[in-house]
Simulated assay, not measured.
Amino acid sequence: MNKKTSCKVYLIDFVCYQPPPSQKCSKERVLKLSRQHGHFTEDMLDFMKNFMERCGIGDSAYLAETYLNQSYKPSMKDARREVEMAIFGSLDMLLGKTGVRTDNIGILVVNCCLYNTAPSLCSMIVNRYKFRENIISYNLVGMGCSAGLRAIGLAKQLLKVLRLITDRSNKLLVKTGAPQFICIDSEYRKYYRKLLHRERSFQIPDQLLVPRRRSVLQLYHPRRRHTGIVGVTINRDILAAAIATITPNLTTVGRLILPSMEEKLLYLINYIARKLLPMLNIRPYIPNYSNAIDHFLPHVGGKPVLDDLQKTLRLSDDVMEPSRMTLYRYGNTSSSSVWYELAYVEAKGRTADHGDCNPWTDEIDQFPVNLVDCEPVPVDFAPSNCNDTSL
């Protein structure tokens, strides 16, 4: 970045981590291990079985090493090893692929949706790769699937306001999901694990979670919005909350990217009418985003969210293909899922060329797969009573 292009932010390249084949785990094996570990009731195991059959995840997704053991006794050591495998594996590929030297990286932003430790993940990376002593680092944790967007927004703002990053420095963004073991503090961990084994709404997120040289992308309009209540429980309100969050973001971005004045005018008239005449219950005008967007890559979340999003925005099956295939193959990788979707698009030859580091390279010809229609995911249960201290 230089002074002439200070308002433009480019992505040199990206990579996605692919766990070793030994960590592939079918849904049947997940249930077998869950029963073997002895932490779940039969009622909960039945719920897990029904959920996994309908959640859109295939039989080639990955599971943490610690969960694959005969006995499930997670520890901080296991969590650290899982994070190191994903982060170091990705960074080794990225640095090798781009040829960027670590002493030319001036900003480091790391986000992980739940895992928080001391020393921080930033410190772990800086020490491993011997980054320069004056590197500006930020460690973002506890923001769930939205952490990636926040990290991108932070990186853009840093590149715009920190004038000292006007040399050949680059910004490194590391995005990772949550390790299988969650540690906040000892008392909360005991409480959370009891909820995990007894409350269905705590099971859903646990099951789903699984510079301008040759730049491949340019960042234009990062937008984010916070809605909902703090926590990791999911209940029947998830669909409404997801759409309620996405709709205002599309409203904001729509006026910036809609290609024709006609679309913008129709959009504006509809927006004003709904604000001034709420009693008429005017339906929101859904612009034809395909005129402005080549690839629509929503966070994979889960099958119900993708289904409702597709219906609300009137998106075709082809448009939703990268998201559904990413959910099927890799599950919900939290804040990094969009990058797996982008890698899918590249592997299909629909955008920039892909290389050997693409996690889809060896099997892209097998996709898309036909997803058998199934019943809705069972999220029609009451919200958890998280204030119940008797657990």
Rank of each mutant, 00 (worst) to 15 (best):
K264I: 12
L309I: 11
T312Q: 02
I272E: 06
I184M: 02
P248D: 08
D206W: 01
R214Q: 12
N291H: 15
K303A: 06
P284Y: 11
N270D: 14
R213A: 09
N291I: 10
V210E: 09
I257P: 07
R212S: 13
A292S: 15
R189E: 06
Y192G: 08
V232D: 10
L277Q: 15
E199Y: 01
T245R: 00
P284E: 13
S290P: 04
V232I: 14
R193G: 00
I269T: 10
L256S: 12
T312D: 07
L195N: 08
R274I: 15
R213P: 04
I243H: 00
I234G: 04
K311T: 02
Y285P: 12
I246R: 00
I243K: 01
R223L: 03
R255F: 13
Y191R: 12
S260I: 08
N281G: 06
R200F: 00
D185H: 08
Q218R: 15
Y188E: 05
N288L: 13
I234F: 02
N249R: 01
I238C: 04
L219G: 08
A292C: 13
T247G: 05
N249Q: 05
I229N: 07
K275N: 10
D206P: 01
Q310G: 13
I282R: 10
I282T: 14
I204F: 06
R274P: 02
S201F: 00
H299P: 07
L309Q: 01
K264N: 07
F296Y: 09
T233D: 08
T233W: 01
S260L: 06
S215N: 09
R200T: 06
L276I: 15
S290N: 15
I229G: 11
G228H: 07
L208D: 11
Q207M: 13
Y289F: 15
R198K: 08
S290I: 06
S201M: 09
P248A: 11
I229M: 13
Q218F: 04
L306R: 01
Q218A: 13
A292P: 09
D294R: 14
H226V: 15
R212N: 12
R223W: 01
F202Q: 07
L268I: 07
T227W: 00
F296E: 09
T251G: 10
Q218W: 09
D237F: 05
Y192R: 11
Y271A: 11
Y271M: 07
L277T: 12
L195E: 04
